[in-house]
Each structure stands twice: as structure tokens, then as C-alpha cells.
Amino acid sequence: MAVTLKINGENRSVDADDETPLLWVLRDDLRLTGTKFGCGIAQCGACTVHVNGQPRRACVTPLSMLEGADVTTIEGLEGREAEAVRAAWAEYDTPQCGYCQSGQIMTAAALLQRTPQPSDEEIDDALAGNICRCATYVRIRKAVKAAGEKLEG
């Protein structure tokens, strides 16, 4: 099935099995490899992208639900929230192995778009679906908070 959708602002047409998860469309067909595979069952959040502005696990998003959708991946994530998050990530030297960080950043940016100055609890709730086996959580929490403060300031 050919599906036309917008990826990082560009119109793309993808011809694949309509049950193909967006994750594999992004990686195998479009070579956007910043979106990672970690579990395949929406447990770890490594594949988080934005679909029509909403955070979404690409591993459980079939191509069939994406006709006309607007998809943003880590490669195309822009805007003041994204800039604030990346700056805070650098300030706190957040990543270790880095493999989950695309997903963490996609979720963090979505959180800040909705809640510009989140509390620790709101940060924990938003990022509860993003596993980091390196346990960089204390830095993620600090960085998201700092990014929020910067956005407000």
C-alpha cells in the first residue's frame, strides 16, 4: 500500500505492507536512523516520534494509520523547546550510551510544548515510558527542568 505522508516537513510516499510499523518505515525505507528500536512493544520509548504534534511510539504505529500524517523525527525536531532541550542536554552531559536519547528528547520536547515549566512529578509522568538502561534519569530530570526554566525566562 502506498501511503503519502509528511516526514520532517517533506512529502514522502512510502509503498510498503500497510501493517509495517512506522519505526521500520523510517529506518529501512527512509534511512532516518535517529529513531531507535528498543523493544518493539511500546515499553521503552526509544522509537518516540511526533505524529501530528503528538508524541507517538513508532514501533506500534502501522503505516495504515498515517495517510496524510505529519511526522517529526529527532532529525527534524526544531523550535524553541527542542533548542532548549538540546542545550540543557549538553549542559548536563546527559547521554551515556545515547541509544535511548532520541526518544527521551522527543518526549521532553513534547512535554515542554504542553507544559513549559514542568514540575519533577510532571517530568516523571511524561518520561515514565522512556527507559534508559544507563539510568541517566537524574540528569534527564535536571535538564528538562532547566530547559523549562530557560523557556520561561
Binding site: L32, T33, G34, E75, V85, P95, I105
Partner: peptide
């Protein structure tokens, strides 16, 4: 600061 943070923040 670490050398690999930027690349790990942009995919």
C-alpha cells in the same frame, strides 16, 4: 563536557 553529547542529541 563529553565529545559525543551533541550527536547523541540529534540522532
Amino acid at each position: 563536557r563529553k565529545l559525543d553529547t551533541a550527536d547523541k542529541s540529534t540522532g
